[in-house]
Design a protein around this nucleic acid. Structure first.
Lengths: 327, 327
DNA sequence: AAAATGTATGTAAGCGGTTACAGAATTTGT
DNA sequence: ACAAATTCTGTAACCGCTTACATACATTTT
């Protein structure tokens, strides 16, 4: 059995209250006493029991990252990057991180909400209903990569990213540019697509032949869609993929059609994931600092839990174009 | 404030013991009583407090996945896949999953071990010392993608995977085959590399010009190493990358040297990650079912926690060659 | 119908900490 | 040196649930 606070109390000759203070608020006990406590604790290999502490304090020092998205989830580099950022920030402040991607979130919620976590970060397409569920249970909520009124949100500057991309293509003389959009997270699709239309409109550019095109989110269907898009007579001279996977599909399609890259076709990706460097030619892409998004989301959440009231309702993380050989 | 078991007890007119039983072991209370309890609970929106329960039962129903690896961790598709498998399995059995990749594991351990988790799955290069730390704290341990005597381990059949790869290359007439090894997890490097030498030896094949070559784990350094490897006079006709990222580097190098793929050079990867389909030509690779590894690891851990004693000390997940156009 | 057996429920003592409040010890002021 | 102010420490109630044990009730057996 593990040593308890009583054992330490007995061995060190002070009360449990003092032992407790020595560990949770050292300033409140005199140095000499504190030393006695620590010595006894060391002898007994005492480690405060986090469960008991959580029980007494009504706080668990745990937060959760819940990815509301169908299919592969944490596997997605984007969500994994956010997860990584959250994890680092949480651990640094002695918070533990629970991760879940349960698709049937009703289930997850009931397990999470039985007071096991202090707060939750919702990634992906979180339904408003879910948010209020948590809030009604007094669990703090922060959204990442999504927006909802009344909840602190951390998002990337999608509009800026798309704009930079379009700008570069325009600069390089492209006039017919298409966007190939996959069935990504609805928020992302909406943002990137409307930003694309806006950026194109501003410059009076035509939205390629066939305009924007939808496809699934995998390479195969992106490749098929791209083949279709590029076969037309007035084919675009540049294609903007809504993410890197889609852009990779475009590259494959271009290769199959014997188009030279970037001479015959410029390709631009989004997310700046690790594949960019692996592709030939290397893919120009809009970089999103996922880790930072995660870090900020975690920071906001922890600030909420600390009772800080000046949490900005919206935090926008800048995006940045990484120009490589594909344009 | 949330309703407690006392509130339910009062409203339903039964003792707290009965309420407790109605929730944790329904069979032990008569149907009529049970109904009364559930009704009262519904009225009060009662949800058993998991912390209190953990305290009383000395069990938290939480497990942790700790990735012992430097640098990007969960970001690695391989570890993310395992994580996904663990998550699914854990959630299905009402376990919660804590994830951490703290590099300074001493820190993490102390936070984890204060009785906050029932068991832990260690991924990456877990030091034996760490394992015994957990065990001495009565925390069950399972290793994934690593081996250590006395601890249940779940690994992939690396030897079989490498063998299949070499076999295919030999079949296609390759005689000079090199392996390009990156600074991956030591266990993986050891397994794959020795399996490679063994498989080559068995067939009396020569280990390409320059034999196996080391590089860092990123595309750039793999590309550089591959350029070097392929420039020689007796260059290998096939290169086996120790993982897909490295193989991607080989492809890039080949392209730069004007080699045709797969005619002039066959390239083989390992892990069958999502990039395989994005590369041109698509990369032949050894598929590892990471999710299954995670699922099995979680299952083993939960079996341990259930007190089952027939846990196999080693579980080997089969690997399978996915043949694509790069060979 | 009483005794024997089995099942359902209640009582109360934990689980291991925290913290309000009170009392003791120390420091400060004069 | 003594009172007042301040800082430390101790006592004990509480956080919400589980479970061993005791008791009440229902069902069989004789």
């Amino acid at each position: 059995m593990n040593a308890t606070i009583y054992d330490v109390s007995r061995l060190s000759g002070v009360s449990t209250a003092t032992v407790s203070r020595a560990f949770s608020d050292p300033e409140r006990v005199r140095p000499a006493t504190r030393r006695k406590v620590y010595e006894a604790a060391a002898v007994l290999h005492y480690q405060p029991n986090a469960i008991a502490r959580a029980m007494a304090r009504q706080r668990t020092d745990k937060i959760a990252y819940l990815i509301c998205k169908k299919g592969a989830t944490i596997l997605d580099e984007f969500y994994a990057g956010i997860c990584d950022g959250i994890m680092r920030t949480a651990n640094r402040s002695d918070y533990q991180l629970l991760v879940s991607t349960e698709e049937d979130w009703r289930l997850t919620v009931s397990t999470l909400q039985s007071k096991q976590i202090d707060g939750v970060i919702l990634g992906g397409d979180a339904p408003a209903e879910l948010v209020s569920q948590f809030q009604s249970q007094n669990v703090a909520v922060v959204l990442v990569n999504n927006r909802l009124a009344g909840v602190p949100c951390v998002v990337a500057d999608e509009e800026g990213g798309v704009r930079q991309g379009v700008e570069l293509l325009a600069q390089r003389g492209h006039r017919r540019i298409s966007m190939l959009v996959g069935r990504l997270n609805p928020y992302v699709v909406r943002e990137r697509y409307s930003a694309f239309l806006a950026a194109m409109g501003e410059r009076g550019l035509s939205v390629g032949a066939g305009g924007a095109r939808m496809c699934d989110a995998d390479v195969e269907s992106a490749t098929a869609a791209a083949l279709d898009l590029l076969k037309g007579k007035d084919r675009p001279t540049a294609v903007f993929g809504a993410n890197d996977v889609i852009a990779a599909g475009v590259i494959k399609a271009a290769r199959r059609l014997g188009l030279r890259l970037p001479e015959d076709l410029a390709v631009m990706g989004y997310d700046d994931s690790t594949v960019c460097a692996m592709l030939e030619p290397e893919l120009t892409s809009v970089h999103i600092d996922c880790r930072q998004m995660g870090e900020l989301a975690a920071a906001r959440l922890m600030a909420l839990l600390d009772g800080q009231s000046d949490i900005p309702p919206l935090t926008v993380v800048p995006t940045q174009l990484r120009v490589r050989r594909s344009v």
